[in-house]
Amino acid sequence: MSEYSGFDFEICLNLGIDTFKLLFRDAFVYRMKQTEKGREYLENAWMLKQTEPDRNRLRQRFGKEGEHVKY
């Protein structure tokens, strides 16, 4: 985290918890974006966090409301 933020280690340890957690999260995301596996991990984590359906994508795949899809 000190590498990402530019702060030395002592300053990082003396940050408020909210600032520390924000910088830690940002540093983690930055590092993960550097590799293909990391980007895949972030995408999977984002998908698992979603609680609402993507209605536009569902309509594209299955049709509009009320239409029945025949297989």
Rank of each mutant, 00 (worst) to 15 (best):
F7R: 05
K21C: 03
C12T: 06
I17K: 11
K33H: 10
S5A: 07
Q34H: 12
F28Q: 04
R61H: 09
F28H: 10
L58H: 00
L23N: 10
D26F: 03
K21I: 04
S2R: 01
I17T: 14
R59G: 00
I11H: 10
Q60G: 02
G63S: 06
M1A: 12
Y71E: 04
E65V: 13
K49V: 02
E10M: 04
E67P: 03
E36P: 00
L13R: 15
E52P: 00
Y41C: 01
E40K: 12
L13E: 15
L15D: 05
V69D: 01
Q34N: 14
G16C: 13
Y4E: 07
F24I: 11
A45S: 07
L42D: 05
F28S: 06
T19V: 14
R57E: 10
Q34V: 11
F9E: 09
Y41V: 00
T35Y: 08
N44R: 03
E67L: 08
E67T: 08
G6I: 03
M32I: 00
F9V: 07
K70N: 09
Y30C: 09
K64H: 10
G66P: 02
C12R: 03
F28K: 09
L42S: 05
M1C: 07
R61A: 13
E36G: 02
I11D: 04
D18H: 05
E65I: 09
F62N: 02
W46G: 09
L23K: 10
R25N: 12
M47Y: 07
N56R: 15
L58D: 03
V29A: 03
R31C: 00
R31Y: 00
Q34S: 13
W46S: 15
M32H: 06
Q34M: 15
E65D: 15
E65A: 13
D54R: 13
Y71V: 07
R31S: 00
G38W: 08
V69W: 04
K33N: 10
K64Q: 12
E3M: 09
F28P: 00
L42C: 01
I17G: 05
Q34D: 14
W46L: 15
L42W: 05
D18E: 12
R55E: 14
L58W: 03
F62E: 02
W46P: 01
F28D: 03
E67N: 06
L58T: 03
G66N: 08
Q50K: 15
T35G: 07
E36V: 04
K70G: 06
T35L: 08
D18N: 07
F7P: 02
K64I: 04
M32Y: 05
W46D: 14
M47V: 10
F24W: 13
K64A: 12
D18W: 02
R39E: 07
R59C: 03
G66D: 12
F24H: 13
L22F: 01
T19P: 01
A27G: 14
D8L: 01
Q50G: 06
F7S: 01
G6K: 03
R25L: 14
E43D: 11
T51I: 12
Q60I: 00
F28Y: 13
E52M: 10
V29D: 02
D26T: 06
S2C: 01
R61Y: 06
E67F: 05
F24G: 08
A27M: 08
E67Q: 13
K33G: 07
N56V: 15
R57L: 09
Q34K: 15
R39W: 01
I17C: 06
N56G: 15
K37I: 02
Y41F: 05
Y4R: 07
L42G: 03
L15Q: 10
V29I: 12
